[in-house]
Amino acid sequence: MPEGAAPILDVSDLKTVFTTRSGEIHAVNAVSFDLAPGELLGVVGESGSGKSVTMMSLIGLLPSPPAEIRGGRAMFDGRDMLAMTQDELREIRGSRIGFVFQDPMTSLNPVFTVGFQLMEPLRVHMNMNKAQARARAVELLELVGIPDAAARLNNYPHQFSGGMRQRVMIAIALACDPQILIADEPTTALDVTIQAQILELVRELRQKLGMAIIWITHDLGVIAGIADRVMVMYGGQVVEQAPVKELFRNPLHPYTRALLETLPGFVGDRAQRLRTIEGQPPSLRAQPTSCPFRARCRHAFERCARENPPMRRDAGGHHVACFWEPDS
């Protein structure tokens, strides 16, 4: 990532709260990050850490109620997306920010042809007529590597395999040449060989099209392979952020370290048992007043219970929210 380039997306202090019958859930707490043009930002964290909710909050995809965005700014192209009306957001969705979701088996509408679903954003956002949209749809399917594209436009989603459906989803997301592609665990529901194909496809598309990508996953292996920069989330907060090599070489947050230890190693002696992270993720019933990871942290001390550690940053672009110094 070229340091100092103006970010295309600059999120600061985002707070999202769900109101449920049993009280409020603070799913996203003061999350800040930015995304440079053409950069691939990996977002990792366990289930419920707020990865998806953060991204969905940005472009108004969370149903409200129960979700409510309590604060923050999300500057995209000089405008605050959180202050936009639903109509303004809708114009951005699908045209300038594309989305790929986790489960390709259910993310496509079963009763419409793939062609219809692929042409929809083209007709809505780019005002194409049917013939133009069709021509572009064929191009897109070819771009994502679906053979015999023209004929397959008339097929229904159930006539595609899981990997092919995810390619269709990617084609839909890329239909209007977005500046940002948000991929929410796009390979989680696929088996490993298909996963590798999709990763290869994304790498290739990124080179061709040059859009920025936010890649949400809980698979650190995937992140190591494709990301430029990594953001680690825990309990609705960003706990660490660093360029990918730096993060894997020198993880600073105890949670990141613990996460890396849960992976089996490929070199050296194999440990008897894989390490796990003991305990449960925090309940998010109130705004955090202490470190959310403290209960499961090996290095927690008294200060961690008193205040929520603020983000510290060093010169190399490595940010961490922790009081503990690994070297001490």
């Binding site: 699908g94 979701f101 993310s107 929809e120 954003p121 989803m169």
Partner: peptide, 20 residues
């Protein structure tokens, strides 16, 4: 999920509901 996809494509709410 496909409803979320339709919304993510930037379709009008009317289209999402009355078509999809």
């Amino acid at each position: 999920d496909y409803v979320r996809t339709a919304r993510a494509k930037g379709l009008r709410e009317r289209t999402v509901l009355l078509v999809h």
